[in-house]
């Protein structure tokens, strides 16, 4: 029997975990709780705040999240555009070292400029973003940033935080209840609310900065020029207050702050990779032009 399984300790640990989460370690020490107990409680606190979804649950949460995004606006119905983004995305996903993720990339038919990810390997860019970026390295930077959100489970953790109704924690129960009623589609509704809430309020600043750092690394690993993502952020900086950028700006730290963080992390560490990097391809320019001709969907 481990220490944390003893009922008495479990209560103490939970209490300590709550106090720890509230940042009150000093009070605990004063109350005579020793360093080791604090550490054990810390571990409990970490596991409490961490995502513990099973692969099946993660898949259900991802499906519900993607379903909401595509409910707001559908995919671009063009096989050439979609397979292009899946190949570029697939190449970038190889640089993460994660072979267990079921990656699916999609271009959403919206002129709003944005990109999203969802648990279980969903990555989306909008048509508006595809025609706003200037070259393939810039698109690679954006896709790699979203891939990083999936790898680091940022969306899953954010959804748990916003899950006030218990939609995620009661996932198993909800699924069982509605199992006979055409499976996940009914069970997904409370999840849909959490997803809606999350996509309209965004992730933590720290998650965005981490995804920026990893995005630059993944794109550079794939052979792209390391400055694709910084160039996109510069482009965003010039678009503050522009039509079509509202949600992007309200859900992310300012481009200036993101560049400042990237500047700190990158320094000149990646300059050595610049010389033998790829910045663009003919295929990208063709796909971008084609995307520019796709009409917006009617309501």
């Amino acid at each position: 029997m481990t220490l944390s399984n003893q009922p008495k300790f479990r209560h103490a640990a939970t209490l300590a975990a709550i106090v720890l989460l509230a940042g009150c370690t000093e009070q605990l020490r004063k109350a005579g709780i020793d360093e080791n107990s604090l550490k054990a409680a810390g571990a409990v606190a970490t596991s409490m705040s961490k995502s513990e979804a099973t692969p099946a649950e993660e898949s259900q949460i991802g499906q519900a999240s993607a379903s909401i995004l595509l409910g707001a606006a559908p995919l671009v119905q063009d096989r050439e555009i979609q397979t292009y983004v899946n190949q570029l995305g697939g190449l970038l996903a190889r640089q993460t070292g994660r072979k267990d993720i079921n990656w699916r990339f999609g271009v959403i038919n919206s002129s709003n400029v944005n990109a999203f990810a969802a648990p279980d390997g969903y990555v989306f860019i909008t048509k508006g973003l595809l025609r706003t970026v200037n070259d393939e390295a810039e698109l690679a930077g954006v896709l790699a940033h979203e891939i990083a959100h999936v790898v680091k489970r940022h969306y899953l953790i954010a959804m748990r935080k916003k899950d006030t109704t218990g939609a995620l924690t009661n996932l198993a129960a909800t699924s069982a209840k509605t199992a006979g009623v055409k499976g996940s589609e009914l069970a997904a509704d409370p999840l849909a609310n959490v997803a809606q809430n999350m996509y309209s309020s965004g992730l933590d600043k720290g998650d965005e900065y981490e995804a920026d750092r990893l995005g630059v690394v993944y794109a550079t690993r794939a052979g792209y020029d390391p400055y694709g993502l910084p160039r996109v952020l510069n482009l965003y900086a010039t678009k503050a207050g522009s039509n079509g950028f509202e949600l992007l700006f309200s859900t992310h730290p300012s481009p200036q702050d993101r560049l400042a963080e990237l500047d700190k992390a990158m320094g000149d560490k990646l300059t050595a990779y610049e010389a033998r990097s790829v910045s663009d391809s003919k295929a990208f320019q063709q796909i971008r032009n084609k995307a520019g001709r796709v009409p917006d969907p009617r309501r």
């Binding site: 995004l69 606006a73 959403i108 919206s110 944005n114 809606q196 509202e246 917006d296 969907p297």
Partner: peptide, 8 residues
């Protein structure tokens, strides 16, 4: 249709 906060 689009991907604004209202659309979501």
């Amino acid at each position: 249709k689009g991907l604004s906060k209202e659309d979501l």
